[in-house]
Write a protein that binds this DNA or RNA. Structure first.
Lengths: 216, 216
DNA sequence: CGCAGTTACGTAACAGCGTTACTTCAACGA
DNA sequence: TCGTTGAAGTAACGCTGTTACGTAACTGCG
């Protein structure tokens, strides 16, 4: 193949093609050679622009966290802070289901050829969690949650949510309760665990369900 | 290398070597060639005994679930069923930390060369969960948990536990709350979420902590 | 005891992987 | 117009899982 014109946007093109490959064929389908073929370049392009597959995947992960943050940020505060927390849970799960392969790479559930995230990469979840922390703080101020550190409470909710999404994407939640049932039961249990009254969670859950956003 | 005597126990030898390789060098270190070299055989042995790396890993996963089940079964029922539930949580986490690489393979957090579990393999978690289901049922009978399906409650606890262990093993729980803090906070939140009184969970947690078993 | 038949295993190869010297050639400034 | 710079291609290295083929060892039968 003859040399192509130098394309300064090749980095972006590579990232988009990599995202498509990952989404359509999974982690095993994302290889340097297939990626290069997809954009009509050679495998060297990955190295000139990213220095290797590791960094390219890292860039995808950053984009994944940014998208998750954007999606969480669309959840607006309402007078019912507990419903806000639940709505954030819906948003988190919906984003994961919209980008399942990317989610599994973001949280190490899919090893891309021994690729490993650097320590710093994992901390992108911190600012992503901020909307949840805020909602938890408001629920605490409203007296629905027990007094406590909103960050710790939010982190534990995130942990539980991740468990559900992770097992759902892995296909472990099929018998006898599917992921939908587990998810809503878990949302209520999380709110009660944080201090809310069991009966009150039903109303907030109904409100949160009505706020579910369409696929992005 | 000259042909060795036919070893009918080579399958077992391979499994043990594979477990050691996985534990010591991680998923990336477990390759057919290194495995073959470790037992002084050729890569063909993997295929005659297992039909490929997939089935060998599957056998390791089965063993992993069996070991998890054994460990969960060591938790005895006491008059404080909530403490029993918590003790099962400790056992679950301890087993995962004792065999981190295996845990990540069991739950798909480490892709071994595109290896994927079959649907049936994932259902080994069902009987593994039985001790937890029993303990939840007893806590319900004792009036500490809200009336409800013990299986669903137990499954949600498992989901949250898996989230914690999964993120802990992935190195995501470092700032500002480490995994130990999150774990005990989550245990209490799970019990409260299931219906227990917040104050009562402190006593049960103290009991469960005293029952922690040494490494196996 | 001796001779098939079956099976376990090693050798060697294939395709594909990430990665990297080395080369070529387009783009830009003087 | 020419020299410099840097992006991209070619081709190779060592690694991976997998498999066709040959061989040697064990097993059952006469």
């Amino acid at each position: 193949m003859s040399p192509r014109r130098i394309d300064p946007q090749l980095a972006t093109t590579l990232l988009e093609a990599a995202a498509r490959l990952l989404a359509e064929e999974g982690a095993a389908g994302l290889t340097t050679r297939r990626l290069a073929a997809a954009v009509g370049a050679s495998t060297t392009a990955v190295y000139t622009h990213f220095g290797g597959m590791d960094n390219l995947v890292r860039a995808m992960v950053h984009e994944g966290f940014a998208r998750l943050h954007r999606r969480m940020s669309t959840v607006r505060a309402t007078p019912d802070a507990v419903a806000d927390v639940m709505a954030l849970g819906y948003a988190y799960r919906a984003n994961s289901l919209d980008h399942p392969q990317l989610y599994q790479v973001m949280f190490g559930s899919a090893a891309l050829g021994g690729f490993a995230l650097a320590d710093g990469d994992r901390q992108h979840g911190k600012y992503t969690l901020q909307p949840l922390v805020d909602a938890v703080a408001r629920a605490t101020e409203q007296g629905r949650f027990r007094a406590g550190d909103p960050l710790l409470v939010a982190q534990n909710m995130w942990i539980a949510l991740h468990g559900l999404v992770s097992l759902e994407l892995g296909g472990y939640l099929i018998d006898p309760y599917d992921a939908d049932v587990c998810f809503e039961a878990q949302l209520r249990a999380l709110m009660v665990g944080a201090g809310d009254e069991y009966e009150a969670t039903a109303t907030s859950l109904a409100r949160a369900r009505r706020r579910r956003s369409p696929r992005t």
